[in-house]
Design a binder for these strands. Structure first.
Lengths: 143, 143
DNA sequence: TTATACTACCACTATACACCACTTTTAAAC
DNA sequence: GTTTAAAAGTGGTGTATAGTGGTAGTATAA
């Protein structure tokens, strides 16, 4: 279970540190991919493979399924840590998340989220919930 | 499991690089054929044979099945890598995928897809899923 | 025999990767 | 609170290799 938030940066070689506490839960490698919001997800290889198995069951004759598989795989990168615990962020993913220099890395249950700090702190960032909205949303699910 | 996206080009001799990370999963040769969308598929020789077995189960009495077999098999080419890791794209396949110069190569589970970059980036390319649709699809398939 | 096309091999360049050194932060002991 | 040590994070450098372009050799056809 990943938790906690760290503030770090990415260098000119597109290397980012995975904070050591989070890294401990990942082993020697991890899967980096596009998130649902304007962020990146880091999965354990185990979790990733479970998802792939599920996807492999879907019928390829359906064009939606093909597009889904494409999106899922093409935007994913298997990353290995260097000796300092860094991974390399592919250009495409870096651009998607609007990452330039400063990062926010946070544990989110079974995965890790990576945000551009500017995007995360932006006043119009709907992914960051204020208290009232929070409660309302939870109420809908009888939490 | 093939994943990730690369941007490369084809030269006047119809040679294309298979990106090294993808190539690592292919061995010394591979099967190249027409895909279901306007792209080419690259299979490992093993997976190709599995596909053939699957197709062999389909009822040949159906003309659509026969057309599919033709589409898939008639244009399949067994390709060997040269020392630089390139394969040669037959004219027929090149034309089918609308390939001229720039390519997009992406991993898609058990196969690799090769797209003309122009075709892939075309605004009317509905084989490319947008993020909102992806989120919906995730929900649909219970992820 | 000549010309053309195709294939295999070779050489160069840019990029990516692995390694090393340093700085900063955190934790612990006195 | 201060000092010390260990770990975490950052930056830079050199080497290997991936990717591209080109050349030579072989085969095929005219």
């Amino acid at each position: 279970m990943f938790m906690g938030t760290s503030y770090n940066s990415i260098d000119e070689k597109n290397r980012m540190i995975v904070p050591s506490k989070l890294r401990a839960g990942l082993g020697t490698r991890c899967i980096l991919t596009k998130g649902l919001d304007r962020c990146l997800y880091i999965y354990t290889t185990d979790d990733w493979e479970k998802q792939m198995e599920k996807i492999a069951q879907l019928p390829e004759s359906d064009p939606k399924v093909r597009a889904f598989i494409r999106h899922f795989c093409a935007n994913a990168a298997e990353c290995e840590f260097d000796r300092q615990g860094r991974i390399i962020i592919p250009q495409e993913l870096k651009a998607y998340a609007g990452i330039e220099k400063e990062l926010v890395t946070m544990g989110a249950m079974s995965k890790i989220e990576v945000w551009s700090r500017d995007v995360w702190d932006a006043p119009d960032n709907d992914s960051k919930m204020e208290n009232e909205d929070f409660a309302k949303a939870l109420a809908e699910y009888n939490f």
